[in-house]
Computed example of a mutant assay.
Amino acid sequence: MKIAVPKEIKNHEYRVALTPTGARELFDRGHQVKLQTGAGEGAGFPDADYEAAGARMEADVDALWSWSELILKVKEPQPDELARLDEGKTLFTYLHLAADENLTRGLMESKATCIAYETITSPHGGLPLLAPMSAVAGRMSVQAGAHSLEKAQGGAGVLLPGVPGVPPARVTVIGGGVVGENAARMALGLGADVTILDTSIPRLETLDHRYQGRMKTAFSSADTLDEAVRESDLIIGAVLVPGAAAPKLITRQQLGDMKPGSVLVDVAIDQGGCFETSRATTHAEPTYVVDGVVHYCVANMPGAVARTSTQALTNATLPFVMALADKGWKQALSDDPHFRPGLNVHQGQVTYPAVAEAFGLDSADPATLLK
């Protein structure tokens, strides 16, 4: 199969969809791999490493897309990239369509087959291709939040761990999944006073047992959210409804109850954000202030640690890439019921119900398309 890896063009996105090791695995299986010249440089992988692995480099991005059968990316297609998609091509990347109607309709118009990393499931009920970036984003959210609390960044001038005689910052993490646990773990390691909220009692029990009560756990309710708004120095939004828009858990009105200079970090921004006042930002301008509260809402947070993120992502995606390359998308999805939910758009039809529901569109059944 002809597999193309273009250079990511989203603002300050340095990741690449395939490491040289991954390219070698595909080459050894008889597939043709081409990367856009310089695609891996931002993650520390020079062109020579890919060429040594059997891949070829292509400077002409239009020629690369035209040549391809399977396109591997990290982030959702940008407008210039949408124009290069057409019927017969398979796109495999993060899509997060429920937060972007224009992108959804653009993919429908392309007639391409679009498979999303974030909606593929596992036999254990997890999201295996979302998990590595969720872990990265969860850990980075605390770094970003701690930096945003500094006075020079518009924050209250609070040091996360405090010092002897001065109490640590209060950190609340909303959501106890992969993002939330990694955020809470990082904040705890830095010495903050950490509370994690979730609506699953079994999950809270697991976290309480795992951390031996060192982090507080609380059932997420209107009352506990109100308390978090009043008392926290840093709130990290880590909620996820797979493939669907994130629920809005903190309203604009509630910002008035927050401490001046407190910080909101919205890790759910790819799915529309879990705070009413959230809007996507970039690494170039990561924060903004609403009613005295600093908002950090970078939509591609793991792109800032591109080498770590690229290695973690390829570790997770490569088995699925090999299945697509060896079998083609239809057979690969037919053979694996957990791969099948990754199909989001095909031949102009939305195939993931939560995306269709978000925009009032009809949803096609993937099982029917695979027959």
Rank of each mutant, 00 (worst) to 15 (best):
G126P: 07
S122K: 11
L107A: 02
D86I: 03
P123H: 09
A98V: 13
M133Y: 10
T113I: 14
G125C: 06
D80W: 07
I115G: 00
L85A: 10
T121F: 10
M140R: 03
T90C: 14
A112H: 00
A98S: 15
M133H: 08
P77A: 13
L95W: 03
M140W: 01
K75R: 14
L85S: 07
E81W: 06
M108N: 02
S110G: 04
R84S: 12
S110L: 01
A112K: 00
P77D: 10
Q78K: 06
A131W: 08
R105S: 06
D86F: 08
E101L: 09
F92T: 00
P77T: 11
F92P: 00
P77Q: 09
D80C: 05
S134M: 07
A112D: 02
L107F: 05
T93F: 09
S134C: 12
Y94C: 06
E101K: 15
T119M: 06
S134Q: 08
L127K: 08
L127A: 10
G125T: 05
G126S: 14
G138N: 11
L85F: 11
K89I: 12
A137Q: 09
N102P: 05
A137G: 12
E76V: 09
A112N: 01
A83D: 14
E76W: 04
S141Q: 03
L85T: 07
E109T: 13
L97W: 03
S122E: 12
L129C: 05
L107P: 00
L91G: 06
R105D: 08
D86Q: 15
R105L: 15
A112S: 15
H96R: 11
A99R: 00
L129G: 00
K111V: 03
P123C: 08
I115H: 01
P77L: 06
A131N: 11
R105K: 15
Y117T: 07
E118M: 03
S110N: 04
T104A: 14
P128E: 02
M133I: 10
L129W: 02
G126F: 06
P132E: 00
